[in-house]
Amino acid sequence: MAGRGYGYTQQECIDVASEFAVQLGKRTKDEPLSMKWMNGFLSKWPESENIPRAFEFVRAKMASEAVVMT
C-alpha cells in the first residue's frame, strides 16, 4: 500500500504488529503492544518512519487513470 501512496498511522502499525505477536505466541490479545514499543521500533529502524501526507492529496493522486488501471 505504501507504494501506492497510502500510509499507515502509528496506531495501525501497532495494531498489525500486536496481531502478529499474538499469532507468534509472543503476546496475548489482552496485552497489545504499546506506543512505547512503537517508539523503540522507530529508534531502531528510523528509515521506516515517513511523514504522512494529507489524505486529500493521496486520494487525488490515486484517482489518476494510470494508477487506477495499474
Rank of each mutant, 00 (worst) to 15 (best):
I14F: 02
A54Q: 11
R53L: 14
M1E: 14
Y8N: 04
K44V: 05
V58E: 05
A63N: 15
S64V: 06
A66K: 10
F55V: 14
S64Y: 01
E19Q: 12
L42A: 13
E31L: 03
I51C: 13
D15N: 06
D30I: 01
Q23W: 03
V68Q: 01
A17Q: 07
A21F: 09
N50R: 12
P52A: 07
N39F: 02
G7N: 13
M69Q: 05
G7I: 04
A60N: 11
E12D: 12
E31D: 15
Y6L: 13
K36E: 08
T70F: 09
I51D: 15
E19W: 01
E65D: 01
R4F: 11
I14R: 06
P52M: 09
G3E: 13
V67I: 04
V58T: 07
A60D: 08
R59K: 12
W45H: 15
L33R: 01
A17E: 06
A66P: 01
G3M: 10
Q23A: 03
E65M: 10
R27E: 05
V16A: 14
W37Q: 11
T28Y: 00
K36Q: 11
F55P: 10
L33Q: 12
E49N: 11
V22E: 05
E56Q: 13
M35F: 03
K44H: 07
G5W: 04
E31V: 14
R4N: 09
E56N: 09
F20D: 08
F41S: 02
S34I: 08
A66V: 15
K36T: 15
M38T: 00
A21L: 03
N39T: 14
Q10I: 10
N50E: 10
W45R: 10
P32W: 10
W45Y: 15
F20I: 07
A63M: 05
A17T: 00
R59N: 05
K36D: 10
W45I: 07
D30F: 08
A21E: 05
K44L: 10
Q10S: 10
Q10M: 12
T70A: 13
R53Y: 05
S18K: 02
L42D: 01
T28W: 00
L24I: 07
K44Y: 03
K44F: 03
V67M: 02
A17I: 02
C13M: 15
E31N: 14
E65F: 03
R27L: 15
M69C: 02
A2P: 04
F41E: 03
E49D: 11
S18P: 04
Q10K: 12
L42I: 08
